[in-house]
């Protein structure tokens, strides 16, 4: 990997972490674990379309790990790591199918996969099948939040391409 790519990945990771921490300050009106905007995933979706698979994995892994350290909730690390893993496993093949006019769909599917991974982890940890009752709410919120972050990433990619920065 060239130094330039490494530096860009580092800057993107820092950006994602800043967005992640700022988002923590926004009060969450929905009292259900797992529902959030996930604004940091704008960076993930952007990276998905501009970097190689391994580089995207590194970015997401570092962001999830450092995010959990910064917000001081290591229990949440397990859930977000499982969500991120499933999300990456699904989206890295899917990015070849979804073209750059439909990146919002990548946001939606990524968010839903993330919620699915989180839910699976929570089910395994708590051994409580009743948790599944949250899943429909997670699907709805994941679709809406993913649509938003996906659209943001789509606009960013289009603007950057127009101004000649990849």
């Amino acid at each position: 990997m060239s130094v330039k790519r490494l530096a860009r990945l580092g800057v993107l990771t820092a950006l994602a972490l800043i967005i992640f921490i700022v988002e923590l300050q926004i009060p969450n009106p929905f009292p259900i674990p797992g529902i959030k905007l996930g604004l940091a995933n704008i960076i993930t979706v952007y990276a998905l379309y501009r970097f190689r698979a391994g580089e995207v994995c590194m970015l997401v892994f570092v962001r999830v790990l450092l995010g959990a350290v910064f917000c001081g909730n290591l229990m949440a690390l397990l859930y977000s790591a499982c969500g991120a893993f499933l999300c990456l496993a699904g989206m890295i093949p899917l990015r070849r199918i979804i073209d750059e006019k439909h990146i919002w769909a990548a946001g939606v599917l990524g968010a839903v996969l993330h919620n699915t991974g989180q839910m699976a982890a929570a089910l395994l940890v708590t051994k409580t099948p009743a948790l599944l009752m949250y899943y429909p709410f997670l699907l709805v919120s994941g679709c809406l939040a993913g649509l938003f972050t996906g659209l943001c990433a789509q606009l960013v990619l289009a603007r950057l391409a127009k101004s000649g920065i990849s």
Binding site: A105, L109, Y135, P136, F137, L139, V140, C143
Partner: peptide, 25 residues
Amino acid sequence: MKQKIIILVCAAIFAAGVIGSAWVL
């Protein structure tokens, strides 16, 4: 064509979520 399938999948997930939420509530 593939794009349409992807969009349909998104719509189906969203509809399933809405129906499931209504059932739960």
